[in-house]
Write a protein that binds this DNA or RNA. Structure first.
Lengths: 144, 144
DNA sequence: CGATGCATCCGGCAATATGCCGGTTGCACC
DNA sequence: GGTGCAACCGGCATATTGCCGGATGCATCG
């Protein structure tokens, strides 16, 4: 009742992408009977591993623009930059990464103008060495 | 046909909480027949308002590694690359972007080895010109 | 005005999926 | 060997789905 084994992981990965799949099809994919599959799923639900099932709703607002700001800093870490980024409501996510880059900043703005302003703000921060802006043209894959 | 009316919004709010609810029950809650409800839902799906249905998974593994793969393609678009990316369960999100880059791929893997393998797979795809891997060292900001 | 097209709704029927249950198997433990 | 248990399977009655024909309201157009 306790382990999350390989089959459970398969179930979770399938359900996290296709939550409305019939139990019978799920059973077919993992090679178990329907009843065994149903039991596993309801165990996962009761154990709280599966918290629920959600429809993934696209953005209702038509005019929003998403973009990535790829930031290289002059020196790391940079608390100041992070604090200032956190101050922008357009900033959705900031990740510190390894390699040439230092920060990947995901933003969501209402217009190209807003993006340009944000870009300028970030580019002129003290510790920012380089900044590449990539506008999201299309969201090709998005999971959980 | 194109409006998202009050009924649609009700449908979305119910489905975003209980994605596996039978269409019949959903119909009962919003006061429409089952077939009309089904039609509305599938319209919302086709219009891309509903992107999919996801199981909401509680805490899974602790030791996962997240990374960005910054991909430059030889030519765009590239259906083949997208299809193959979709085949990797580690791939969480793929965005087509403007600028020097073409794709921003967000991945989540269990180990550095898995990341390297994935990186190699992607790097050797026909249409991939250049690939930069940036491992997420820290998630600094994350907003719903 | 009447005809046409269209979006939306309803209900019905066959096919499919689900809930529930009894029965089997493998395994650990005394 | 006997008992308890977790996990599996299949079957049957019931619920849900996919698919269809048909009704209704409404705008358009000759």
């Amino acid at each position: 009742m306790q382990d999350i084994d390989a089959i459970d992981r398969t179930i979770l990965s399938i359900l996290s992408q296709e939550a409305r799949i019939p139990m019978k099809s799920l059973a077919g994919r993992i090679g178990l009977s329907r009843s065994a599959t149903t039991e596993r799923v309801s165990r996962l639900e009761k154990a709280g591993v599966i918290r629920g099932y959600r429809a993934d709703i696209g953005q209702l607002e038509e005019g929003t623009i998403q973009a990535f700001l790829l930031v290289t800093l002059k020196r790391t870490p940079s608390i100041g930059v992070l604090d200032r980024l956190a101050g922008f409501s357009a900033v959705r996510k900031v990740s510190s990464v390894s390699g040439q880059l230092d920060l990947v900043v995901e933003v969501e703005v209402g217009s190209i103008n807003a993006l340009n302003e944000l870009r300028n703000e970030v580019a002129t921060m003290d510790n920012v060495e380089d900044l590449t802006t990539s506008i999201v043209l299309r969201r090709d894959i998005e999971r959980s």
